[in-house]
Every structure is written in structure tokens, then in C-alpha cells.
Amino acid sequence: MSQLTIDTVQDDTSLRAWTEVVDAVDVWGVTSFEDARYLREAQAGRVDYVLRREGVPVGAAFVRPRGGGSETPCAVAGIWVRPEHRRNGLGTRLHDTLSTHARGLGMRELEIEAYESQEDALCFLGNRGYQEVTRHTELVLELDDVPMPEVRPPPGITFITREGREDLLPGMYQVAREAIPDIPMDGEDEVGTFEDWRASDIDRPIHTPDLTFVALHGDEVVGYAVLQRAQRGVAFHSLTGVKRAWRGRGIASALKRAQIAGAKKAGFKRLVTENVVENAPIRHLNEKMGYRTLPGAIVFRGPLVGSTEPTRPR
């Protein structure tokens, strides 16, 4: 019988092993070592695990409390096992470990995301009582197939990047406080404090100032859009938000064109975005701009191992 060990990530060596597994298994392979290290430090209560078989890293997982001041008794988690090592109980071992830790935090459920294309993951979660909470469509724009867009902000609006402009952050936070709660979601989506928002949406290594576009009316921040620097020629859309009073004027679509232009200039080959299925306006905008729909992502919630409480119907 092969030797299996599950260790908590304690140093850069074990974190590199964790990152290599996630990068090999994840649909997009976007987890850089630098970003993984940042998240470990920034997300309070986060614990990462590496599963080794005969000393070789073949599985990875993490668990953390929900951010933003949420009181929901549900922890956020992730599980990855290399394909050639699946169906040997390794995912179950990691799930047991996450459940034990989450129960110690007073949690009753885990929230895990899986893609529609990941049949193994969907079966794994379904067999353990997980139920769908929300679903995102996945869209991709092949940047070599589209011309450089003309970026023309609406009258009275100017666009700048965040480079050297720390003074813009309070205004951007106010945009997030209006934009994020208005995203159609089945469940809560907390913005949290300014410090919470900054840690998750601004200071991550994948969120660089040169690819953060801010819409100004005079000195007022009325909208912004962020690109995430991924790997393998891929960039991801993060939040594109506009203050409620300024919506319907073409700011969001102009910010989207600024992102496309910025990604092309930076040498990226693909732009990827996720839209909540219920968010019809942004889905329509993306499709109008040439984004192609791919199999999407599903967020599940399910009971901890050994829980006597069934997952609430949704």
C-alpha cells in the first residue's frame, strides 16, 4: 500500500508544491506562486494542504472562512488531485481534512467551485451531497482575432490607469460598495471593509496598476475595471463596476474596450471573464464585443463529513 501524507503548507518549498498541483489541474492554470503566497498571508484563517503519495505531491487543498465580515457558517474551500491519481480515495482524504478543520472553526458547510467540463469534480461533489448555489458563464475573447479597439469615454468622463494614484482608492471602494451588491447572486456577496476590499481587489500581485482602468468625472471616481494577469498568455476580467447614478451612459462598455486595448498592448492572447447567469446586461455586452461562450463554473455548497445536518435546499 502506497504511503500517503497530508501536510499543511508551512514554507515556500511546500507552497511551490501546492502551486504546481493546482496549476496542473486547474482549467486555466492561473495560480502563480507569488499570488498563492499573497493569498496565504492576506486571507485570515486560510490553511493550505499538500497531499503526497510516496513523497510526490499529487493533491492540494485549502480552506478558509468567508471574508467580508460574513457570519454564514460556511467555509470556502478547494480540492485538486492530479488526473492520473484520481479514483483512489485521495480527494476523499482531502475532503475529510477540510471538514475537520472547518468544523473546528464552527462551520457547517463547505463552498467549492467546479467547472462544467470537470466531470470527475461534479461527480465527487454530487456524491457528497453538494448542491448548486450559483452558476457562471465562462467567456473568452481571442485577442489576435479582434482589431485594436478605439477607446472613447462618454462626454465628461476621462479614463486613467491606477499607476501612481493611491488617492483613487477611496473613490474606487465607493464604486465597489455599489457595484458588487448589485451583481445578481444566489447568496451574499460581501464587500467588507476598505481593508478587506483592498486586500482582495487591489493589492494581489495579479492586479497590477497598469491594467486597472478608472473612470473619472472631474475628481469623482464613477467606475473602474480591473484585469488579472494570469499565465500562458491569459488575462482575466475582474470587477467592472459603475456607480448607480452613472449607469446607462456607456461607461461600462468603454471600460471594457479599454481593457481589451490594454490586454492587447500588454501582449496577452486571450481575455477570459465569468458572468453570473442572471446578469443579462453584462452577458449581452460581452457577446456583442465578440466573446465566445465556454463551459462555465458552478459554485456548490455541501455538508462537512460526518455532519448530521442536511444541506439546506436551494
Rank of each mutant, 00 (worst) to 15 (best):
E54Y: 10
G55E: 05
P57Q: 15
V58H: 09
G59D: 13
A60V: 06
A61V: 10
V63C: 07
V63F: 01
V63G: 01
R64A: 11
R64Y: 09
R64F: 06
P65N: 03
P65E: 01
P65C: 04
R66Y: 04
G67T: 04
G68K: 02
G69P: 01
S70Y: 08
E71Q: 11
C74R: 15
A75I: 05
V76T: 15
A77R: 02
A77K: 01
G78N: 12
G78M: 05
I79Y: 13
W80Y: 15
V81A: 04
R82V: 07
P83K: 09
P83E: 06
E84R: 07
E84C: 09
H85F: 13
R86E: 13
N88I: 05
N88S: 12
G89D: 08
L90V: 15
G91W: 04
G91R: 06
T92I: 10
R93F: 05
L94R: 07
H95K: 05
H95D: 12
D96W: 08
T97G: 07
L98M: 04
S99C: 04
S99L: 03
T100H: 11
H101K: 15
A102M: 08
A102Q: 12
L105R: 15
M107W: 10
R108D: 11
R108A: 13
R108C: 02
L110G: 12
E111P: 03
E111F: 01
E111R: 03
I112R: 00
E113Q: 12
E113K: 09
Y115N: 10
E116N: 09
E116S: 04
E116G: 02
E116W: 09
Q118F: 13
Q118G: 12
Q118R: 09
Q118Y: 15
E119A: 11
E119F: 10
E119C: 10
A121Y: 03
L122C: 13
L122V: 11
L122S: 06
F124T: 13
F124Y: 14
L125F: 04
G126T: 08
N127A: 06
N127Q: 15
R128D: 04
G129L: 12
Y130K: 08
V133G: 13
V133H: 13
T134R: 14
T134V: 12
R135I: 00
R135Q: 09
H136S: 11
H136K: 04
T137A: 11
V140E: 02
V140H: 04
L141C: 11
E142S: 15
D144K: 14
D144N: 08
D145W: 12
D145N: 12
P147R: 12
P147H: 10
P147S: 10
M148A: 13
E150T: 12
V151T: 02
V151G: 08
R152Y: 07
R152G: 05
P153D: 10
P154I: 05
P155F: 07
I157D: 07
I157R: 03
F159G: 03
F159E: 01
F159H: 08
I160A: 02
T161H: 03
T161Y: 07
R162D: 03
E163S: 03
E163V: 14
G164I: 00
R165M: 02
R165F: 02
E166C: 02
L168K: 00
L169N: 00
G171D: 00
G171L: 00
V175G: 00
V175T: 00
V175K: 00
A176S: 06
A176G: 01
R177Y: 00
E178M: 01
A179K: 01
I180Y: 01
I180Q: 02
D182L: 06
D182Q: 13
